[in-house]
Design a protein around this nucleic acid. Structure first.
Lengths: 332, 332
DNA sequence: TTGTATGCGTTATCAT
DNA sequence: ATGATAACGCATACAA
């Protein structure tokens, strides 16, 4: 890699003159600037970013810690994060916790040595289940800004970007009750132990309760078993006329298996799930979704974090990204 | 952030003594080491990574440039990359080209200033269509190792990790012909302009030709139109008894819409698509897949690149990751 | 307009 | 056993 020193030597001028010339300082003569820039171009000079980082004490890198990236919600958020980061001249270092507390902890520690200017994260499942968050407050105490999205820790005060999980499921459930006259609405979940899962279940329960109906909740731990369990449940409870899925996958599985058990969607059974941009392509008929604007969540997270980084006396914020109910063909 | 200098001042010893003590040098007395380590722990000292990077001229960061991450194949590869990188004490900076030549170019340029030790990339769709790759050779000429996976540029000599796209589709097609006695096999594609797409189509054509059958290829540009086009094609060609999808999505859509047109899978229609770990959950009946071991591709890419980085006289390699045909319920 | 000196935080070499 | 100094590449305050 070409350095300032090499350029200076070749041109028989000092390093600082070269530096100033390349930064278009008014102190330098046009003639010198021209000579310097020409040689720099010729030798394909690029300022060494590591040196700049050391000098300015800023990396222009955001650490992004995600539970997983094979879940399309997080993949889409990552897309939003990357896009917005690039726009703002930031790079992102991505770590996957694989839902593990240990790995999340390790990543935060390893990057808290000047590697990044701040973090964007969604908390790992295990961290939420075990209610451990000391590793996160450590980072914040260390004066490195942290922003949480989607899965957040209420007790930690930091920037947050979330959706109104309670309200969205409340609305969806109410829609099924009032607009579609459904009375036997099953909630299907494989994320009941997450903060967002609890909020969504609460939204369902409240709507059911307000309508004087009876809540029915099917908690499924393994994604591999969803089809079998739903199949059995509906066999045992054939009166079921609607399903609310509070994650991004169980609703799709339910629709795709419905015909097996003799239910026509949406005539006999309405299904609403959580989803993102391409979810609706994966079921036939198309699933109706509570649309989390995953890309926007990523984008807004970056913007809020960068605002934090650039502002002297930043006020912590919680942004609630609106959700919309996007009807497909799985509702009447 | 605590620095060596601060520790030295507080302990009334020199910076170099502190440095040596923390690196457990034999030159330093046990007593001093103890004092230093105690204070360092107390103040939560961590060596500044940027300074170390400047000193050693190594970042221990790999630049990862992906076309997209919402395609689950790339998401899964990324998972493999991240896992293996972490194991080897590397971090990854992730850039998404969004299939755009310009963005790919920009990312490569921006990171070629010492930000990363090497690159892992899959070429953007636009770069492949326009057959542009000068921006990639520039990087390599600059002595920064580049590894390509999946979508590669044949003309560039660098490390590569690929699957045998030709053979895998050849085998799948032959399976349908010989084991399932299918005779009207439709190939569905939305990636025919990619290097891998061409290879896969060739595999199909060769198998069809060897069996004396007639190739039928349906090229679909927009993922939104797949269902409608397949529907129409089968309406016009009701003799169709099998579908080979050479991407990860059109096969799923075909299965989920088959019943609409009165075809029972797999009695009347077999479907084989490309897939990865969780693909089979998304269709009912479960799709049969040509299983690309995406995680392994990511893992092996990291290992090969790191080997390149650590080896003085590295020999460029092309690793072919084996594929297996993973039967679901969409074949007889 | 140009050059010299200093420092960012670390490590390594060379004194003491 | 400990300390002083230089160097990585860059940017800037200060001299000339």
């Amino acid at each position: 890699m070409t350095t300032l020193k090499e350029l200076a030597k070749l041109l028989n001028i000092s390093v600082s003159t070269v530096s100033k010339a390349l930064n278009d300082s008014h102190e330098i003569s046009e003639n010198t600037k021209k000579r310097v820039i020409e040689l720099a171009d010729k030798l394909n000079y690029k300022p060494n970013r590591i040196a700049q980082q050391l000098k300015t004490n800023k990396t222009k890198i955001i650490g992004v810690i995600l539970p997983t990236v094979t879940n399309p919600f997080f993949a889409q958020v990552l897309h939003g994060i990357e896009t917005s980061a690039t726009t703002n001249n930031y790079d992102i270092i991505v770590c996957l916790s694989d839902e593990s507390l240990e790995k999340e902890k390790r990543s935060l520690e390893l990057l808290s040595n000047g590697s990044v200017d701040g973090f964007i994260m969604a908390v790992a499942r295990e961290s939420q289940v075990k209610e451990q968050s000391g590793h996160i407050t450590d980072v914040i105490d260390n004066k490195i800004p942290v922003l949480m999205f989607d899965r957040v820790v209420n007790e930690i005060s930091c920037d947050k970007v979330i959706v109104d999980d309670f309200q969205s499921v409340y609305d969806a459930t109410e829609y099924l009750i009032k607009k579609e006259s459904r009375e036997h609405i099953l909630l299907v979940s494989n994320i009941e132990e997450l903060s967002v899962g609890k909020l969504r279940i609460n939204g369902y329960q409240k709507a059911i309760e307000n309508a004087g109906l009876k809540p029915k909740i099917l908690k499924l731990s393994k994604v591999e078993n969803v089809e079998a369990h739903v199949y059995q449940y509906i066999g045992d409870h054939p009166e079921t006329d609607a399903i609310v899925s509070i994650d991004h996958i169980t609703g799709i599985i339910a629709i795709n298996m419905a015909k097996k058990i003799g239910k026509t969607v949406p005539k006999d059974l309405s299904v609403i799930g959580f989803g993102y941009e391409h979810t609706q392509l994966l079921s036939s008929p198309k699933i109706s979704i509570i649309h989390q604007k995953a890309f926007d969540i990523g984008k807004m997270s970056v913007e809020l974090l960068i605002d934090h980084l650039n502002t002297e006396d930043h006020q912590l914020q919680t942004i609630i990204v609106p959700i919309d109910l996007k009807l497909g063909e799985s509702t009447k």
